[in-house]
Design a protein around this nucleic acid. Structure first.
Lengths: 224, 224
DNA sequence: AGTATAAACTGAACACTGTTTAGTGAACAT
DNA sequence: ATGTTCACTAAACAGTGTTCAGTTTATACT
């Protein structure tokens, strides 16, 4: 029947245009989200900004959530960049690295409120998907690995974590990482949804948290 | 002119009916929210459930947010009831009381997900209002006082909190309370928005958090 | 009693939202 | 030149919160 006589050249052009428009949609979405928040990302507004009709958006994305999903990915990539810039330059003690990481995490949240709100508070499907079937190249998974490595190093440096669970046993690096992460997330998310509530500034709360926990972890070991 | 000939009796009846309908609206709202979440609380659905037209709702509440606000209040009252049931019966050491409070807080969030999401994640205006001009009888403010008292007792019992801030100084009870609260909130809110992410169960994370922090606070004091 | 007045209530509309579908026009492959 | 495929859009659908003119009902006064 029909012989595919190398239609790749032309198809490539089409495909390139497709990708280009797709990226344009995502760029506009990022703009709107970072400026006005995820709720302000309406399909009509987005379509108008890129000069197409709303229906066109559905030729490139299944629905609004899929756009959020794609934007989330770059959000996690941004977070990863922030965190890895810490681990790369900080070659000091594990405790100091964790301190820096915590501060950087919270600062990222406060400096990119709309992005943080999207990836951790409004698009839970992304995180859920990552932990449902872990992908190697996912930026969110990379963030997790990075944090896990930091607490792992801390424990390996001779810390004695408290016991927990039933029956009581030593806390694992995973549990410690997730406790820390959740705590940092609490500081950020609370500040983002209600700037008035934690009356103390976020960076101070972070310091209190990390210092107290570090002391709690090193309590059993000899000082200095 | 017209003499107001004691129209109070009749007015009272009217007023009673008004209040009754108002309460009916709120009861229906609570039902919908606890069952389907705040997003499912639409004015039309709410109106239909109580047998009135949507426009009637606006005779009793300025808008949907005001309904959320009223429902939030009872949500905080519920939380307060949970927390104060702890402080009343627990006459043990401050550390144990704080342990119980933390567990109860997290449990409340997980057992009343829609309510928790409403009062801490979807209706920030309420908390903002409380901390803008503190009202004595507000249940949210009472929750705060309760937690503050617990950490205050803990510090008074001889704990030596770590130093923080610039210049470094001893952490205050307020800062410690808010750090703890934010951390617990992080555990709850993360679990609610994404059950998959903190892979460890919430109560275990809570235990890790509270045990580590307690050790961090008592690190400088003699053991036992 | 009847009547004036005030309160309660509603139908219908407005301006939005995400999403679908039928139909048009242009670019491509043969 | 023709048949096919792809890109695109206007219009509609079913929702949303909210407003307002108009109607019904209950109260107040003579």
């Amino acid at each position: 029947m029909a012989v595919n006589k190398i239609p790749e050249k032309k198809s490539q052009r089409r495909e390139a245009a497709r990708q280009s428009l797709r990226e344009e949609i995502l760029a506009a979405s990022r703009d709107i989200i970072t400026q006005e928040g995820f709720a302000a990302l309406t399909m009509r507004k987005l379509a108008e900004r890129i000069g197409y009709s709303p229906a066109t958006l559905y030729l490139h994305f299944r629905n609004r959530d899929e756009i959020a999903h794609a934007v989330s990915r770059t959000g996690y990539a941004d977070l990863l960049k922030t965190l890895s810039s810490i681990t790369e330059k900080d070659r000091g003690k594990p405790a100091d690295r964790l301190r820096s990481l915590a501060k950087a995490y919270v600062r990222f949240g406060l400096e990119n409120p709309q992005t943080y709100a999207l990836i951790f508070m409004e698009d839970p499907a992304y995180l859920a998907a990552v932990f449902a079937e872990p992908a190697e190249d996912d930026p969110a998974a990379a963030c997790y690995s990075l944090m896990l490595a930091a607490t792992g190093d801390l424990l390996a440096a001779g810390m004695r974590p408290p016991k927990a669970g039933k029956p009581a046993r030593a806390v694992t690096a995973v549990e410690l990482t997730e406790s820390l992460w959740a705590s940092m997330h609490g500081i950020v998310s609370l500040k983002l949804t209600c700037p008035a509530f934690p009356t103390a500034p976020a960076d101070l709360l972070t310091e209190v948290l990390i210092e107290t926990m570090l002391r709690g972890l090193s309590a059993a070991t000899a000082k200095k």
